[in-house]
């Protein structure tokens, strides 16, 4: 991790995070860290535990054991509120949208702008939502339509816009470009880079290694609920990483 100044403690770190679902050991001791301004990618097979891990960071699941440090403060688990309050926001793999509501309602869900905490400031929210979508450069012809009527990529854009708007310190992306076209993916990757430049920490889960190499500073390979290896993208060529993933396969 040569991009990181040694004196700076990680914004977020975990140690020995484990999680079981019945008999399935989804996570078996995950040690991970990310610093402000850094883009950390997690890659790995389907079912390797990536989503489970980030759900623990966003407070949606309680780990069975392990510790989460946020800016040096340790937690056994987080609630969604705590995670959000710590400045962590997340683009979920399933997007977590309210399909019957429009773009503005989705972007502000849970964080509505109000007059005196009571009445919604709908116009203002719609205006901000419009600006966000425009900045993302993703074609949504009518942002007042329910997001359930949008295409997969457009829906993903709404989820990304929401996380970016609310994220203060760390934004987690769980396959943010999975349904997007080339142009839209490029826009999201550009956005991720600009967030890191603003000194935010980023965790991105992505199956597309080319996209990973476009943005990430470090890559962690996850397998069977463990992080096998973390390397810097500057030191490891893409082909070598690919080989490492395949080799990991043969170890089992």
């Amino acid at each position: 991790m040569d991009t990181v100044i040694a004196s700076e403690p990680p914004l977020l770190a975990t140690e020995g995070i484990a999680k079981r679902f019945g008999n399935i050991r989804a996570l078996q001791g995950v040690d991970f860290s990310v610093c402000a301004g850094q883009i950390a990618a997690i890659v790995g097979d389907n079912g390797s535990g990536k989503t489970t891990f980030i759900k623990i960071l966003s407070g949606n699941l309680r780990p069975d054991s392990g510790t989460i440090w946020i800016q040096g403060v340790s937690h056994a688990f987080l609630t969604p509120k705590q995670s959000l309050a710590a400045g962590i926001s997340t683009v979920y793999q399933d997007l977590s949208l309210d399909d019957y509501r429009d773009v503005a309602a989705n972007i502000f869900l849970g964080e509505e702008l109000t007059y005196g905490g009571l009445f919604l400031r709908k116009k203002e929210m719609t205006r901000i939502a419009g600006d966000l979508i425009r900045d993302l450069n993703i074609g949504i012809p009518d942002i007042t339509l329910p997001v359930g009527s949008f295409s997969g990529g457009q829906r993903q854009a709404v989820a990304v816009a929401r996380a970016v708007y609310h994220g203060k310190k760390l934004v987690i992306f769980d396959e943010p470009t999975a349904a997007m076209g080339v142009r839209e993916s490029a826009a999201v990757l550009r956005l991720i880079r600009s967030l890191a430049q603003k000194h935010m920490a980023i965790i991105i889960i992505c199956h597309n290694l080319h996209q990973v190499y476009e943005v990430a500073d470090q890559v962690s390979i996850m397998r069977h609920g463990k992080i096998l290896q973390t390397t810097s993208t500057a030191d490891t060529p893409l082909e070598q990483l690919q080989q490492m993933i395949i080799d990991a396969d043969e170890v089992d």
């Binding site: 966003s58 407070g59 949606n60 609630t79 969604p80 509120k81 959000l84 997340t90 979920y92 977590s96 949208l97 309210d98 399909d99 019957y100 509501r101 869900l109 849970g110 964080e111």
Partner: peptide, 10 residues
């Protein structure tokens, strides 16, 4: 419409 999303958003 999406109770889980609401919970995730705190």
């Amino acid at each position: 419409s999406n109770c889980e999303a609401l919970r995730r958003l705190g």
